[in-house]
Nucleic acid binder design. Structure first.
Lengths: 210, 210
DNA sequence: TAGAAACTTGACTCGGTGAGTCAACTTATT
DNA sequence: AATAAGTTGACTCACCGAGTCAAGTTTCTA
């Protein structure tokens, strides 16, 4: 294959074009390497964020860095291939669960706690929040979903009188982004301290139910 | 003069050694340049923090970068020459004023507001907080003073029951450091938003007086 | 006012890090 | 075993500001 931009796509189940040999045109060793790279990327990106050196991913996959370029065209392609597993799925789950909580105050408490938990456990989430990486479809979808829940929570919170009336959706966003910056550039505090601080934040923006 | 580590000290008033020609051994052009560099450094560091390129300081001073090395030996020397004006004086003033407030709750509110104000106006403060620059005497003095007032405020706040009982001095430090990180690496919000958020933070850690 | 020392500076080198490339080699496939 | 696909070690490149130095300029002194 001519090396260059036209790198092969990794097998995805429902291959639309070329029905025969459905899963792939790749040679078996190449397919195996691609799978290993994906697995390694999920681990390494999940643990260290999307700015982790590709070299690290390669080593974890037992493969050379060049192979990542052959298969995925570089960092951007690799991120796109794993972002769903590393970030999108979990954040979607949080949003859904949040929506399923009937009590408004609890809903707010839950969302902030869950997001902050995710930020703590998955640095890659912070990379997404800080928009450090290229705007792919998934990225936009995630951000859109987040923007929606911000609005819902803030509006419902005001209506129910359980949120400080002057608290805006921008404040909520800032809260989360500032935390992303602190986690990304600072030292991560012990979990107990972090959770206690989550409590203080909530205490500052919530109001006791009427 | 042989260039190298033994760069000339800029004239300080009370020259202890060499009483004759008290203010300086420097040639007049060198003295003028040094003054311009100091002025430029106060501006540039004050506005962009201590990590601003020395090139920028040089340009602002109407001088070449090499001259900064001749006079101050590099970034560290230059920071030491201006840190008092850029950071130490103002933070000392805040601490003193804070101590002069009789009411504990007001004292806490004032300190947090004033520190956050300083962080917003003077990025260099954040560089100091984040310990990004060499540990000079002044640095240590500033940090020591800050540590003291943390303890005082938290202890007094607990005693008076105006601070959440589980709030620690580490929490206070984290609050301030996280804000430093957000300001340094993120986008600075409009002032009104920033101040509103200061209010939320206080609301989360304070308790109404008995 | 000339000679010497002090001072300045443009144009360099350097350093550390990680992205991205490619010619030569290896392996699967037919 | 021929061929094309795939892999890789070793490279270049870019970045970006710190720090250096030989050559030129200014001040000082006598």
């Amino acid at each position: 294959m001519t090396p260059g931009v036209k790198f092969a796509r990794v097998a995805e189940e429902g291959e639309v074009v070329a029905p025969s040999r459905s899963t792939s045109e790749l040679r078996t060793d190449a397919r195996r390497n691609a799978a290993q790279i994906l697995a390694a990327a999920r681990n390494v990106f999940g643990e260290h964020g999307f700015s982790a050196p590709l070299e690290d991913v390669a080593v974890a996959a037992g493969v050379s860095k060049a192979t990542i370029f052959n298969r995925f065209g570089g960092r951007v392609g690799l991120i796109e291939a794993v972002i769903e597993d590393v970030v999108a799925a979990e954040s979607q789950r949080i949003i859904e669960h949040t929506r399923s909580i009937p009590d408004v105050a609890e809903r707010i408490d839950h969302y902030l706690g869950a997001i902050r938990d995710l930020q703590y456990r998955r640095p890659a989430v912070n990379d997404v929040l800080l928009q450090e990486y290229p705007h792919s479809e998934q990225l936009l979808a995630i951000c859109h979903a987040a923007g929606e829940i911000y609005d819902e929570l803030v509006e419902a919170g005001h209506a129910a009188g359980v949120l400080a009336p002057e608290f805006t959706r921008e404040d909520l966003h800032a809260l989360i982004v500032d935390n992303a910056l602190a986690l990304k550039h600072g030292s991560r505090p012990p979990r107990a301290d972090y959770d206690r601080r989550t409590g203080f934040i909530l205490g500052g923006i919530r109001r006791p139910a009427r």
